[in-house]
Simulated assay, not measured.
Amino acid sequence: MKKTLSLVTLLAAGTTQAAGFQINTQSARSTGMGNAAAAWLDDSSAIYSNAANILGVNKLDVQVGDTGILPGIKFTPVGGAEQGQKTTLSPPPHLFFVYKPVEKAAFGVGVYTPFGARSRWEDGFIGRFRAEESALAVYNINPTVAYQLHERFRFGAGLNIYRGTLELKRALNFVDSEGTVHLGGASWGWGYNVGVQVDVLPKVVTFGLHYRSAADLTFKGDADFQNVPTEFLSRLPDTRVQGDVTLPATVAAGISVTPMENLRIAFDANWVDWSSFQELAIEFPDNPAINNPLPKRWHAKWNYHLGAEYGVTPDLQVRLGFILDPAPTPGGTLTPDLPDANRFGVSAGLGYKWQGLRADLGYQFVSLADKESYAPGISGTYNGSAHVLGVTLGYGM
């Protein structure tokens, strides 16, 4: 039998708590409210949710935290047994600083991870020739300024400086044996964000709108081929590798209602332009014969967030939230290199203040509903769940 080489998709971003490879849990306070934060969040983490809202800081606000994301996605091939992923904890951190020198102006900087995922499929996974292990992280350094143009209208803007890293491992099918390929790469990119906040009814109803631009990243690194049969060595030497990824543009529109002094109810509708992700391709500049881009044809999607915060006392708050987050992946291109499913989440949280210090804790349970794939060669059903636990410590004055 003549041996043939199957070298297909090499990018495997895995799963996060949000659809695609987005991470939107950048504050434990927001996490507890189901990430409904575009219209009201008034601390330094507003750098992520709506740049205009940093004007809610009194004088100075600093916070640091981490979010543990524990996803568990499963795949059941048509006519086969269910297979899953190894337990992998992703801990994207967040750090925010805002200073307000005068009543109408504020500036600050945030460092956080808006995109990323980790994935490790079980040994012997049926889709190992598409994906075995991966770790994708996109860090954002986000300097931000905001100004109050009117007593009811605030405007903010920021620069997004992205640093992405990518590590991948997948199996190679040589028919009579199996090899592996390890990839590592990094990239810089940039974009911008702008936001507005409007007091529709002062102290009662607030509206927020925030836009974050798309950004192009070109990952460049090295490919290390292992356990390659002698007859393939000349075709698969260790070599340079690169791949392009476009981070999607996003729009967040939110409304916040305060029917009584110690109760806030918020709702966000977020649009994510995943349509920028039409193809998944890793290129080998020195060996283009093994390039094999795969179509993805993702769709732009809306996701929805509803949350509430209740002040039990002036220092103690409790929070609840609900999330609906449809997957952008059509069934015809859904494969284990980028597993996904429609997500439904519930959240809860606590916050406590002591003088200028505060601590917030937020938890989300995310259910990944059955998502059918009819991709050629690896059709089946994806589903699973994810646990998200966020902790944020802050100081304000």
Rank of each mutant, 00 (worst) to 15 (best):
A19R: 10
K59V: 08
W121K: 11
L89A: 13
Y99C: 09
L41P: 14
R29S: 13
R29E: 12
V78F: 10
V57D: 02
P114Q: 00
L41M: 11
E103H: 10
F75G: 14
V62D: 11
V57P: 03
A51S: 15
I23W: 00
A39Y: 02
M33C: 11
S49E: 12
P71T: 07
W121D: 15
N35G: 11
Y99K: 01
G84Y: 09
G56Y: 00
Q63I: 03
G68L: 15
K104A: 13
I47R: 00
S27P: 04
K86H: 13
S30E: 09
S49R: 03
D43P: 01
Q83E: 15
N53C: 05
L55H: 01
I47Y: 03
G79Y: 04
G108Y: 00
W121N: 12
L60N: 07
A106E: 04
F75Q: 06
T88K: 12
G108K: 01
I23E: 05
Y99H: 12
T87H: 12
N50D: 08
N58G: 09
A46V: 00
A46G: 06
G110Y: 00
L60E: 08
G56E: 01
F96K: 01
G116H: 02
A81E: 11
L60G: 09
R118C: 13
L55G: 03
E82G: 11
A37T: 05
P114T: 02
Q22G: 12
G34P: 07
I69T: 08
S119Y: 11
L95S: 12
G110V: 04
R120A: 15
G108P: 04
T25M: 03
S45P: 06
N53M: 03
L95W: 07
L70N: 12
D42E: 12
A37S: 15
V62M: 08
A46M: 02
G110N: 06
A36T: 07
T87Q: 14
A38L: 06
N58W: 02
P101L: 10
G32L: 03
I47A: 09
S27R: 03
N50E: 05
G65H: 01
A37M: 06
T25N: 06
N53I: 00
Q83N: 14
G56M: 02
G116M: 00
A28T: 02
T25Q: 07
A81H: 07
H94G: 06
I73P: 09
T25R: 01
G65K: 00
T76W: 09
T113A: 13
L41C: 12
A19M: 12
W40A: 14
W40R: 05
K104T: 11
K59A: 10
G84A: 14
A36E: 10
G116N: 02
T113G: 10
G56P: 03
P92H: 06
S30Q: 05
G34W: 01
D61W: 00
W121L: 14
W40C: 11
P114M: 01
G32S: 05
G116Y: 00
S119E: 14
V62P: 13
Y48E: 08
I47P: 08
P92M: 06
S119V: 15
